[in-house]
């Protein structure tokens, strides 16, 4: 494989939330790497820890409640968890940029679009106000907002949802980040607009050479955009593989369950009922003994309920955390 060191390396990351109801192990020992220029998808359902992983990398966890209790996050060899606030600020929006799910609330309503894009350029690259604004105009044109110069003076409410997400992308890419973390960037958008935004993100990624970490609950979105995929469940990685490999040979019963529960266009004629995953996601405030998926798993036995399976390589570059990886249900 690639001899070069990975761009980002997350090692045994553990993030816990300390609340009155107890300690929630939101991320419970997650390790993975992101290589320069690649598109890595992180999929899972609500509460699996995918967003908390992203927030931990950027150290944007809610203060006092959320804490990284173990692990390392290495960006080009440098541990981000050891940096002071100032040094961390130099990284956010500069070497690692993030796009959030809500295009309606992640822009400042009282600043113009131009000011918001220019701000990051001014701060991180020390550009003059005029140069920063010129860069903002260039970025707006790049994300295909017509009449970019005039629209620099507009406020967020004058933009539709799809256009606001374009502005977010423009802002995120304005400082040429090495890594772009996109947390459900298209979930709040209509399907036709979603298709436009995904296409735009991939085109711009090619142009700028940034690596993309795409966090989503939707396997179809991963299938259409990513090179490598991580599947998370209950704060842990359950499967990791290259995208075609994962869809051709899913090893973990949870991944298989997810794949067969997605309604597919064109599949209804063949299969009337959807395959369900019975039961519920476990409560992460309680200690998980054995495999977290065991209570919902058709293959689970006493071994699964007693001992948590480690993430191991079962096929070439294809890892799964399951004692029965690949066994037929």
């Amino acid at each position: 494989m690639d001899a070069a060191a990975p761009l980002l390396s997350v090692e045994d990351l553990r993030t816990h939330f300390f609340t009155v109801d107890g300690v929630t192990r939101a991320v419970d020992g997650v390790s993975f790497t992101v290589n320069a220029g690649e598109t890595l998808g992180i999929v899972g359902e609500s509460g699996c820890g995918k967003s908390v992983t992203a927030l931990s990398i950027l150290r944007l966890l809610p203060q006092r409640i959320g804490r990284i209790v173990g692990g390392r996050v290495l960006l080009e060899g440098e541990d981000l968890l050891g940096l002071d606030i100032g040094a961390m600020r130099d990284i956010r929006g500069n070497r690692i940029a993030m796009i959030f799910q809500e295009p309606m609330t992640s822009l400042n309503p009282v600043l113009t679009i131009g000011e918001q894009i220019a701000e990051a350029v001014r701060i991180h690259q020390g550009a003059s106000a005029a140069d920063a604004l010129a860069r903002a105009e260039e970025m707006l044109a790049l994300v295909r907002i017509s009449d970019a110069r005039r629209r620099l003076g507009d406020y967020p409410h004058q933009f539709s949802g799809g256009m606001r997400q374009r502005v977010m992308i423009a802002m995120a890419l304005s400082c040429n980040p090495k890594l772009l973390i996109a947390d459900e960037p298209t979930t709040a958008l209509d399907v036709t607009v979603q298709a436009q935004i995904l296409k735009l993100m991939l085109e711009l990624k090619e142009r700028t050479g940034a690596a993309v970490m795409l966090i989503t609950h939707a396997l179809p979105v991963v299938a259409e955009t990513c090179q490598r995929v991580i599947v998370m469940y209950a704060g842990r990685i359950v499967e990791m593989a290259e995208v075609t490999e994962l869809f051709d040979r899913p090893l973990h019963p949870y991944t298989r369950g997810l794949m067969s529960s997605i309604p597919r266009l064109g599949a209804a004629a063949r299969q009337k009922r959807l395959t369900e995953i019975p039961g519920l996601v476990p409560d992460l405030r309680k200690p998980v003994i054995g495999c977290a998926f065991a209570p919902r798993c058709p293959l689970a036995d006493d071994h699964c309920r007693a001992e948590a399976p480690p993430l191991t390589e079962h096929l070439t570059a294809h890892q799964a955390a399951c004692w029965k990886a690949g066994e037929a249900a």
Partner: peptide, 25 residues
């Protein structure tokens, strides 16, 4: 047609040139 084309397909081999319609509603 555009709605059908825009719906993402859970098959990485089926990535195709889509009829992506421009603009918002």
């Amino acid at each position: 047609k555009a709605l059908i084309a825009a719906a993402p397909v859970p098959d990485p081999r089926a990535r195709r040139e889509k009829l992506v319609i421009e603009g918002d509603v």
